[in-house]
Design a protein around this nucleic acid. Structure first.
Lengths: 142, 142
DNA sequence: GTGGCTGCAAATCATTTGCATATAC
DNA sequence: GTATATGCAAATGATTTGCAGCCAC
C-alpha cells in the first residue's frame, strides 16, 4: 500500500517525499472529517515533531493542483480538504462547523450540472455544490 | 426609491441608518461585479470619507443574516456578495478572479437540488453551486 | 550534482473585536 | 431616554513568503 502511494505520486509527476506520503496517510484517515490544514498539521506534528505547517500548506496546494484532493471553502471557516475527488455535494453546519458528504446517506436528485465542462466559452475545471444549514444534532441540542 | 429601501430594511427588522442605505446603493450599483468588502469600502469611502471598514463588515453580516444578500466564498480569494438572493450558480475564474452569474447568458440544465430544504434531518438554509475554471478572456490572452 | 523540497520565522492579508461616541426610534 | 450602530485602532487568525539547509532523483 505504500507502493501504491508512491505510484500515485509518480503518476501525477509529484516528487515523492516522506512528508507527502504522510499527508496522504493523514488525509485518508481523516477523510470523513474533511480535515482543515490545522487538523492535518496537529495529527502530523504528533507523529513527526518537526513537521512544518508550511509544508502542509505546500503539499495540499500541489495535491489540489494535481487533482488528488478537492478543496472546500466556506464563509467564516478555514478551508478544508476532501481526498475523494469524485464531484459530490457537501453540507456545512453553521452551528458546529462540521462538513458532510451529501449523496450517500441522504440521496438527492441527479445533478446534471456536475457533468458540465464548458459554460459559453468558460472552461470548467471543477464544480462544488454546497448546502448550508443546521445539522440534526445541533437542531436537537438547542 | 429611497422610500423603497427604507421600507425594505424596516420589513426585515433592520434599524435604518445612512450607512446601511449607502451599502444597499453600492451593492446595487456593483451587483454585476459581485463586490468584495474592499470593493464596497473603496466606493463608499469615496463618497463618505469617514465610512468605516468595520461598518461594511457589520452591515453585510446583518444583510446576509436577514436574507438581503448572498455570501460567496472561494479558496484564495476574499469573500464577495450578490444582492440577487435568488439561488443561482456562479462561475469563478482562477486567473482573473472575476465572478459571474451562471444561467442567464449561458443556460444550464435545471438544478432540482436548488429546491432542497432538508437532507435527512439536516435543515438546509442556503445552497451554492460554484463552477471553477478559466474564463474565455483569460484563455485567449495566454 | 542540482533542482526541488522542507522547516522555521517573519510578513501579509482578511476579518473580528473593544470601546467611547453618536444616532435611530 | 435607551438600545443599537458607528468609527477607529488594535488584535486575531489564516495563509503566504523568504531563505538557508536538506533530500530525491
Amino acid at each position: 500500500m505504500i507502493q501504491q502511494k508512491v505510484q500515485l505520486l509518480k503518476e501525477k509527476g509529484i516528487v515523492v517525499t516522506i512528508q507527502r506520503m504522510a499527508v496522504l496517510d493523514a488525509l485518508e484517515e481523516m477523510a470523513e472529517l474533511h480535515p482543515t490544514v490545522e487538523d492535518l498539521y496537529r495529527s502530523l506534528k504528533g507523529r513527526y515533531p518537526t513537521f512544518s505547517l508550511a509544508t502542509v500548506y505546500n503539499t495540499l496546494e500541489i495535491f489540489h493542483k494535481m487533482g488528488l484532493v478537492q478543496e472546500l471553502s466556506f464563509p467564516k471557516r478555514e478551508r478544508c480538504y476532501d481526498p475523494n475527488t469524485e464531484p459530490h455535494p457537501h453540507f456545512f453546519c453553521r452551528v458546529c462547523g462540521r462538513v458532510w458528504d451529501v449523496g450517500k446517506t441522504c440521496p438527492i436528485p441527479e445533478c446534471p450540472v456536475l457533468k458540465i465542462k464548458n459554460l459559453g466559452g468558460k472552461k470548467v475545471e471543477g464544480i462544488q455544490i454546497y448546502f448550508y444549514g443546521v445539522c440534526q444534532e445541533c437542531r436537537n441540542s438547542k
